[in-house]
Design a protein around this nucleic acid. Structure first.
Lengths: 204, 204
DNA sequence: CTAATGACAGATTACATTAATTGTCAATAC
DNA sequence: GTATTGACAATTAATGTAATCTGTCATTAG
């Protein structure tokens, strides 16, 4: 494994930026994984000394968290779009959850290393993750509110319901259960839970 | 740590039984945890040689699984009683889930080592665990059937619904999430999910 | 003839030693 | 003056070795 290849390189200017470091760090983390990667690896890829990294990030963990934060923001950005499609709230809700599941499953396979780190962060309940969950809940809340407004759903507290829906579908999006997402039954299991929850929403 | 104390001892007869080994193994596992405990520890506690253990169990893992199986059976036995209380199915269902949560939380605190092993078995999706889940689903199924029969719940497939309810409450009973069971919000979270699911059952 | 033992080879784990990494900071470059 | 460097102490990880454990089986005891 060659760890000395310059990924981006600090070719242009004499001074480095936080963004440059972040971009390169994401690259390197994706290759080797945040645990195997050293700060010196990131610095080497940029053609700078590892000391310079510490001018922009307090610690390796801060750097790691910043990378995962960007990764999660990109993630919730895609979901935002999925929730914004036109149509009845019921369909939007379903499409949102389908997208959530599809994205998580895909990222789990593709970006194994970053997914594992997200996994770790969830364990330690880092602020990065709770901010991400807040965004998801807000997106859900908006769809539910729309559904109540146009009479599709019974009147209920949108925030409470959004939380309940996320909690009830834990099995299908929480990284702990990622190993189960490849099984054949997982789609059926989701369908069952979805049916139960939908009835709850429609006839509350 | 004194590992040489005889817990049960092979005092009576000259021949040892599978049950004696199991009982002592559970004791020793509880003290030191299944990872730290050696087969020789178990044999020493019984006053026999470690070779004799292999006459009754193929491997250390087989012994460990047998202990966890007993532990889980005792667990589902208690739940069986909780589901058998008289009253409307809705209350029985709630009591069953409350008991499930209470027992899991208690075992998580008290029997840390065995709980961790159960945790491991869940990861490896060992047959021991799926058998245990089958029992739980059957218990739920019975309550739901009773609820349909007396008109409390809408007509639905009891098995499908039982699975859906277990899946939807993953966050509250799956060992992966044990760390979250001490938080203050967990009861509120359960209440929210329960409300959603109950509406689903009542008005499907 | 069955139950139990304990010596043994192969596999695993624990430990101490060695190497590398993190994060700091005085010195250097621009 | 600000940005960057690289030597450094403290911490963390990797390595190799000694000790322990697992599982087998020929032998002994009843």
């Amino acid at each position: 494994m060659n760890k000395s290849g310059r990924a981006g390189g600090n070719t242009s200017s004499g001074t480095i930026s936080r963004e440059q470091i972040l971009a390169t760090a994401e690259d390197v983390f994706r290759r080797f994984g945040p645990t195997k990667t050293t700060v010196m690896d990131v610095a080497r890829a940029l053609g700078i000394s590892h000391g310079s990294v510490y001018r922009y990030f307090d610690s390796k963990i801060a750097l790691r968290n910043a990378v995962v934060e960007i990764w999660l923001q990109r993630f919730s950005g895609k979901l935002e779009k999925a929730g914004a499609v036109p149509g009845p709230a019921r369909q939007r809700l379903r499409f949102w959850f389908d997208t959530l599941r599809r994205l998580k499953t895909a990222e789990y396979r593709r970006e194994t290393e970053l997914f594992a780190t997200y996994h770790e962060l969830v364990q330690d309940s880092q602020p990065v993750v709770s901010a991400y969950y807040d965004v998801l809940i807000l997106q859900l809340e908006n769809i539910i509110t729309a559904g109540i407004d146009n009479g599709e759903f019974q009147n209920c507290d949108p925030r409470t319901t959004a939380c309940a829906m996320l909690d009830a579908t834990t099995l299908f999006h929480h990284p702990w259960h990622a190993a189960a997402w490849h099984g054949k039954e997982i789609d059926d299991e989701f369908e069952r839970v979805w049916t139960l929850v939908m009835y709850g929403l429609l006839c509350a």
